[in-house]
Design a protein around this nucleic acid. Sequence first.
DNA 1: CTGTTAGCGCCTTCAG
DNA 2: CTGAAGGCGCTAACAG
Lengths: 331, 331
Amino acid sequence: MKKISIKDVAKKAGVSISTVSRVLTNSAPVSEELREKVIQAVQELGYSPSSIARSLRNGATKTIGFILPDITNPFFANIVRGAEDYLRQHGYTLIFGSSDQDKNEENHILEALLSKHIDGLLFTGSGDSNPKLLRKIEQGLKVVFLDRIIRGVNSSYVIVDNKRGISLLVDHLLDDGHKSFLFINGDKNTFSAKQRYEAFLQRMKSGKYKYEHHFTSFSYEAGYKFASQLSNPVEFDAILCGNDLIAFGVIDALEDRGIRVPEQVSVTGFDDIPFSRHYKPALTTVRQPMYEMGQKACELLLKMIKEQLMTTEGIILEPELVVRESTKRRI
Amino acid sequence: MKKISIKDVAKKAGVSISTVSRVLTNSAPVSEELREKVIQAVQELGYSPSSIARSLRNGATKTIGFILPDITNPFFANIVRGAEDYLRQHGYTLIFGSSDQDKNEENHILEALLSKHIDGLLFTGSGDSNPKLLRKIEQGLKVVFLDRIIRGVNSSYVIVDNKRGISLLVDHLLDDGHKSFLFINGDKNTFSAKQRYEAFLQRMKSGKYKYEHHFTSFSYEAGYKFASQLSNPVEFDAILCGNDLIAFGVIDALEDRGIRVPEQVSVTGFDDIPFSRHYKPALTTVRQPMYEMGQKACELLLKMIKEQLMTTEGIILEPELVVRESTKRRI
DNA sequence: CTGTTAGCGCCTTCAG
DNA sequence: CTGAAGGCGCTAACAG
């Protein structure tokens, strides 16, 4: 691909390269006459300035990185979409990488992003704190943690109030006469799973309900497997799940075992991915504003970049209880 | 963020920058002694070379762009994942943009990607040929069209054999005794929708079946809406849908109208997104190897980039019929 | 208002 | 084997 540079434009327009630069960036006044010539030349040549060279010169790439577990998971895909839209609107580009929660892959991606000189990073990583990342933060890398926080790090974040979400859910279940609860949670080392666990525990202990809690993994398969191996699934009135995917797996496994949801047992999810409303039975769950999370995180990140401040800010979004058909009132 | 450059490394190691460059790129022999010093310095400084500067120098960014309709659609998310994995494995980075099939947005994203000096482009665009893109292709931009082809362009592509997919489906339905067919297709201006339409028409005309065909849009909502407005849904034995999302919408709408699937009417999808197997009823559909499509497209693209050949290659992947519970044998 | 020039970080001749 | 120097495309002083 033959590249056309600012020089070509300058030559064609019969002006100097600085003039071209000036009209393109509007950084200084240029006579109407020359401006027109330049614009003309730009169009004819189909020239677009190299942001590579610009980046090198300006020290900013207008690019944001996003490390997340898996783009294939609708929860993250929707967050990404929010981020993407916000960023493009503000002249930024997004590069992301799926880590599958793998520590090595995480570092690998981080390395790649860093070498691309990203201006900032959105991070949804595995639970354990990542030394390489911490170091970069200390060196001044702007990072916003999304959905998950790494403990011991003073950094900005955007999450939803997981505890409140669980609280809302348990309240509703209690109101509907449920008396015993099983919580099939997600990955143990994950911030959100931990938060949800704590909230659950707290609520359970405050009454004297029968309950049980298990960490598994945030996937359909994990839910299906766990529910398949349950010795007596109907010993609980309600099964809470770490996220919607787990809930789908659980419901399917139960039905395969001839247990009807919600008739025999209520099942709930967390996230409210777009699909949950179409599931049969439509899932009672806690809605996280995914698109908004992506937007807010970027808004925060760009602010940090622009103002070059070391200060840190946390945004906690409100979850919303969504009652549908996978739960029902117990007598 | 204080940046450390090759100069800092050179100074710390007490060598020239060229030596540092040489050990980093392995481009020329360096004495063991100096090599060690350099490596030492690199580690202590936590230095990683700026791919920005490298790109400017080498003229290659090791970055691939991907313009697609919507990352939130599982079909594309899975393709992206395939591409992402392949590219990272080969030292490339992926930048994508969701266009919502909007022509303007498409151009907007293209502009952004181009200015980032991508080495190649994966493109799943709206149906109409895009003049700006065509021009860039002529100028030497390497492009692989994915899932959709723009007519009149001689370029590489990776698609599945849509016609064969429909053929497989219709054969199966015929085998199962279906005699009348309604096809609720996706976006009219889309390559895949057109192909599927043609295949459908061809098969229908070859027998003397009762049939009808309509273009709508590749979404749940479109399916739901269309099926809701159908005057007499059960006048057909089978309803074929342009993709799985449409099928979900159709099934839900039918059930809301008290029509049972597949008892009263069979419904089929296209794509086999991960969710389709968990739908109730589990969807009979045509599987597209999404992950593989992403991989193959990148493989092809990198080949084109590496060999700098103007030749063009098309890969047509085989679809696979997946029979599940949304269809049943008619008497 | 316009043109010339230095230099962003790196790789690659070209000398030594 | 090693160092010095040019230049990728661009912007921001610096002169005029």
